[in-house]
């Protein structure tokens, strides 16, 4: 229990420290990226579903896997889409604006 607590407390400090200097420009992608990271609950969903036999709980576990995968995969893809736009080069002045 103490080991887990140690990891927990240290992670809190790391979590605050790594993002403490973020500019507001990146708040949206950062929120979206952090959101995707907690999609790793998929790992937990796989672990519990893989070790239960009761059909009701296999069902709940499977539902958890679907939800967690949506969170994780969707989260990373959407964050990448956002960040991709930041890295785009300046278009030619005559480039046609999309509607």
């Amino acid at each position: 229990m103490i080991e887990l607590l140690t990891i927990l407390v240290l992670s809190v400090f790391v979590g605050v420290e790594v993002i403490s200097k973020v500019s507001s420009t990146l708040h949206t992608p950062l929120m979206s990226g952090a959101n995707a990271i907690h999609g790793v609950i998929l790992l937990g969903a796989i672990l519990v579903t893989g070790s239960t036999d009761d059909p009701v709980f296999v069902g709940l576990g499977t539902l958890a896997i679907v939800l967690a995968t949506v969170n994780m995969v969707g989260g990373f893809v959407v964050t990448d889409r956002m960040l991709q736009m930041f890295s785009r080069k300046r278009p030619r002045p005559d480039a046609k604006a999309r509607p």
């Binding site: 927990l8 605050v16 952090a34 990271i37 907690h38």
Partner: peptide, 8 residues
Amino acid sequence: GGTLVGAS
């Protein structure tokens, strides 16, 4: 992972 997201 969870704690990082929770704290940040």
